Structures are given as C-alpha cells and as structure tokens.
Simulated scan of single mutants.
Amino acid sequence: MLKTCAKHLTNNYGTMRCLSMQPSHMNIFDRNAKRLQKERAALNTDVALYDYLKEEVGFRLSDRVFDIKREFKTAADIGCNRGYISKHILAECVEHLTLTDTSASMLEQAQGTPGLRMSKLVQDEEQLDFEENSMDLIISSLSLHWVNDLPGCFARIKRSLKPDGVFIASLFGGDTLYELRSSLQLAELERKGGIAPHVSPFTQIRDIGSLLNRAGFTMLTIDTDEIVIGYPSMFELMWDLKGMAENNAAFNRPAHLSRETLMAASAIYKELYSKPNEEGVPATFQIIYLVGWKPGPNQPQPLPRGTADVSLKDLGNIFEKGGKIKIDAES
C-alpha cells in the first residue's frame, strides 16, 4: 500500500513538473523562416518597389509620435525592417534612436533623417534585451503580427520603458487580406475537398486592449484603419507580398499550392471581389494602431469616487445648458 502511494505521488509530481515547464504561449510562426524571408527580400535588386504599404503606415505612425509634445532622449524602433519610421523621425523629437531587426540586411539598409543619432542592433522582437527603465519611447511598425508570444513581448517592452514612457505601434489586424484568404479556401475546398492555412493568422483588435492591460499599460488608445490597394490580379498581390517579406511563415503552412488551385482561386477572387466594369482586384489591409503608457507619477489620475456633481443620466440636460461638470461614472 505504501509503495503504491509513493508511486502515485511520484507520478503526480512528474506530471505537475511537466505542466509547469509547458510554454505559456503557442508557437504559430517560424521565426527563422521569417528572418530568411526578410533577408531574401532585402537582397532583391528591386526591393524598394515593394515598400509602398510599409512606407505609408510608417509615415502615419511617425505622425502619431509628433502628436506627443515631448522630446524623447532615448527611443527604440523594434522590427524596423528597412527603416520605415526612422526616415520620418526628426532629431528635434528624438535624441537617440536604436533600430532592431532580425534581418541584418534590412537593418543595414535603414536610414535616418539628418542629425538623428542612431545605433543598430540585430535582435529578435521576442527576445528584447534593453535595460530596465532605459527607454522613453518604443515604436514598432508592421512587425509585431509575426511575434508568437505577444503578451511576453508587451511585458518586456513595458519593462524597458521608463516610468511615464510610451509605446506606439502598428500591426496588421484580423481582416487583413480576407479576400485572398477566402478565395484560396474556396478554391482548395472545391479542388481538394479540404483547406490549408495559406494566409497567416492576424491579431484581432478586440484582443489588443486586453493584452496591453495585462502587460500593465495605462491610458490606452487603440484604433484601426483600412488601406485598400488595387492589383491587376491575385498573382500580382501574392508576388508583392513576397517582395514585402509578408508571405506566410506559419509552422503549418503547406509546402506546395497546385497550379489548378491557384487558377481557381484567381477566378473566384475576381468574381467575388472585383467591381463591375473595373479591371483588377482589391486587397484590404487592416491596420491596428495602439498607444500605451507605462504608469508614472506625473500621469493624469482619475478623480476619487463619489466626488461627482451630477449623475450620468443628467448629461443631456447639462450639455444643452453648456455647463461644466464633474462626472461620477458610478452614478
């Protein structure tokens, strides 16, 4: 009886130990494959032809940095690619900018504005190694959607920021390339009787706020934008995605896509999504923009509960009279 109990306890201990060693996230993306894709794209002689989307999003994200009326002494651009943010950041706004990326070739091609002090570091976004409380600003443009451990990445970013530091980023949202995804699925279902993941999964906007809150960020701002780009056909879209290094990098991606499935998908794409009497097909890119602040002593704080002048139900009457009030959200 004692031997049986001891064996049972030993087995339970071994089980609990194995469970404790399980990773807290699922590895969906092959980070090494993504690094190789970026290297191949960077070494392409016409790499600049495929910068149009990332250039536009980088410019829009840089504009959000300018909206913060503060001079940042230390900043980092993680997953900088070919420097789509650094070429818009002014020296008057950021004193020193650290660029990081997994691709050494892309990192080498990144340039900054005149007078901007920069340093470059080959580093994976999943393994950030900045000193604690060392950064005033961390930026990332269209890179974090390839990170497996997004909660851990957000936590490391918050750790690297100084108190009252800010994190500003953009990433592709869940509706990105829904036309391509559905066309490939319908074609493969028709030709093969099943579907495979030919387009990588993207983060849903409803999850971003929860992940930022979980990491400890405050004063969150999250919004989305849609950029619709026209292509002559589905094949030009897929070619451009490869040139951007945005082709599929999921571990379970199929190694081959048959010619007949591609031709069927192209026909379905045109039939379902092209506008009448117009050539070409549209492709939708949903961009999620986020801003989060590390808690600090100088940040605005909510008023103590119970200090309101009126109830929320009286807001309509107050606004009609043009009055100034304090609001109690619990009223």
Rank of each mutant, 00 (worst) to 15 (best):
Q185S: 13
I157Y: 01
K158V: 04
L212I: 05
I327P: 01
L180M: 10
N44V: 00
T176Y: 11
T176C: 13
D223Q: 11
I139G: 00
F217C: 05
A48Y: 11
F202S: 05
F59E: 05
H88M: 03
L189K: 10
N133I: 12
A42D: 02
K34I: 07
N44G: 08
G58T: 04
N148Q: 02
K120A: 04
F154A: 05
L36P: 01
T307G: 09
F235S: 09
R259C: 01
L19G: 03
T113P: 02
S170C: 09
S274N: 02
P197Y: 14
H88E: 04
F217I: 00
G194H: 15
Y84D: 10
H145M: 07
G209E: 06
M106W: 01
E226M: 09
F235V: 12
L97R: 05
I157A: 03
L107F: 07
K313G: 07
A6V: 15
S311A: 11
R17M: 14
D77S: 08
E132H: 08
S200I: 04
F59Y: 02
L241R: 02
P276N: 08
L212G: 02
M135C: 06
G58Q: 08
F251T: 12
N133D: 04
I139C: 13
A283P: 07
K34Q: 12
V122C: 10
Q127A: 08
I138T: 07
C80L: 02
S210A: 13
K87L: 00
N247F: 10
D225G: 04
D77L: 04
T74P: 00
N148W: 12
T100Q: 03
D164A: 15
K242F: 03
L43M: 11
L128V: 12
Y269T: 07
A48R: 15
L186Y: 11
P197F: 15
K120C: 03
M1Y: 14
G173H: 05
S140G: 09
N317K: 15
A169M: 14
P232C: 06
E320L: 09
R206V: 10
S103T: 04
T10C: 06
D77T: 11
V122H: 01
A215L: 12
D240L: 03
F167L: 06
S258I: 01
M238E: 08
N298K: 14
A91R: 05
V122D: 03
W293I: 00
E92M: 10
M16L: 13
E330I: 01
N133M: 06
H88Y: 14
